[in-house]
């Protein structure tokens, strides 16, 4: 084992403790993103470049953007309503009970895990081993990259349900968002509010980055069949491009239209059609016809990339935002540290 691993592992733990201990939420989120980047490095050390890519793009990237945007909305909200009297009186007895509970839970979990890991060290490796099974069957999967073979062929059912999970999240997001728009009066500018004029530098930077991100996304998608990459990482890149475009005032997907719905469901829809069609010839659900595996996997991945990108982007854009009266709106970008966190928000 190398010193690097020791340091990286300790770094992860320290970053995590920093997240838990920091009083300021903004600081906690920044530390959390740092944690994500360290974790991406860790995945590289564990010979899992796919996970490194996914962690950087999704775990640290998209999650970080969503969190920062939320903090921005909270600060905006605090300014909208009169500065909240710090009514958050800590309930002492409750907090004390939670601390005791946490202590018990931590000690038992730590004891259990330590006992389990210590015993693993003493034990022979299990006789079952999926590594050899994957290797023996990968030739029939239509792709040569192990993880893609597992995700889109051997265990494609998991992936189907996983995309359904994403879809449920955005359905709830849209459901909660639209309600405000319909219940609010015509004066409400929610959902249609334009971003404040972005700096010229930002706009030109976005114009430059946007095609670059899209090309990278397509490459990552294409790479997935032979080496690290695939629909989820590519989808995250598409979403990142969308977030950038939004910052550069290129307005997309702000309204829920039939076209957007089509885009959101496209991935699952095509996946389901490809999965069901072999049943017409008497083959099991989710079987690829022989010889067509590679092509169909690429087709599904392409559609999934579009849907995942749109879903992740919509989770950002459709998230509930406060209604902002005009004068306050102009005042916000000037307020010190908030400016950073507010970037992602509708201002």
């Amino acid at each position: 084992m190398m010193w690097f691993d020791l340091a990286l592992g300790l770094g992860l733990i320290i970053a995590a403790i920093g997240v838990f201990r920091s009083e300021d939420l903004f600081r906690a989120v920044v530390l959390f993103v740092t944690f994500g980047i360290l974790l991406a490095l860790t995945w590289l050390r564990l010979q899992a470049p796919d996970l490194a890519l996914a962690e950087a793009a999704i775990g640290a990237g998209i999650t970080g953007v969503l969190l920062l945007d939320t903090l921005g909305v909270f600060r905006q909200h605090e300014q909208d309503i009169n500065p909240r009297s710090s009514s958050q009186l800590p309930d002492i007895s409750r907090q004390w009970a939670a601390n005791v509970l946490a202590l018990i839970a931590c000690i038992s979990a730590a004891g259990l895990l330590a006992w389990s890991l210590f015993n693993t060290l003493k034990m022979p490796a299990p006789h079952h081993n999926l590594v050899t099974v994957v290797e023996a069957n990968i030739a029939y999967s239509g792709v040569s990259h192990g993880i893609t073979a597992v995700l889109l062929n051997f265990r494609s059912y998991d992936t189907l349900l996983e995309v359904a999970v994403l879809l449920v999240a955005i359905v709830i997001g849209i459901g909660l968002r639209e309600r405000v728009t319909t219940s609010a009066n015509a004066t409400s500018d929610e959902g249609q509010s334009k971003l404040s004029e972005p700096p010229a530098l930002l706009t030109s930077l976005v114009r430059l980055l946007l095609p670059l991100l899209l090309i990278t996304a397509i490459f990552v998608l294409w790479a997935g069949s032979t080496r690290p990459g695939g629909a989820f990482q590519a989808g995250a890149l598409i979403a990142a491009a969308g977030v950038l475009a939004r910052l550069g005032q290129i307005d997309i997907a702000a309204r829920v239209t039939t076209i957007l719905r089509l885009g959101l469901t496209l991935g699952v829809f095509i996946f389901l059609i490809v999965a069901v069609s072999p049943m017409l010839t008497g083959k099991p659900f989710l079987t690829y016809p022989a010889g067509w595996e590679g092509t169909l996997i690429l087709l599904i991945e392409f559609m999934l990339t579009i849907s995942i990108g749109l879903i992740l982007l919509s989770l950002f854009i459709q998230a509930p935002r406060p209604r902002i009266p005009a004068p306050v709106r102009n005042a916000i970008p000037a307020t010190g540290p908030n400016a950073e966190t507010n970037k992602g928000g509708d201002q």
Binding site: A48, D50, L51, A54, E55, I58, G59, I62, T63, L130, V131, V134, G146, I147, A149, V150, L151, R155, D158, T159, E162, V165, L166, V168, A169, G230, F232, I308, L312, L315
Partner: peptide, 16 residues
Amino acid sequence: SVPQALVLTGIVVAVA
């Protein structure tokens, strides 16, 4: 690659 694929699924579920 199996647990790696599972974790990839897990990461996406976590972001959702």
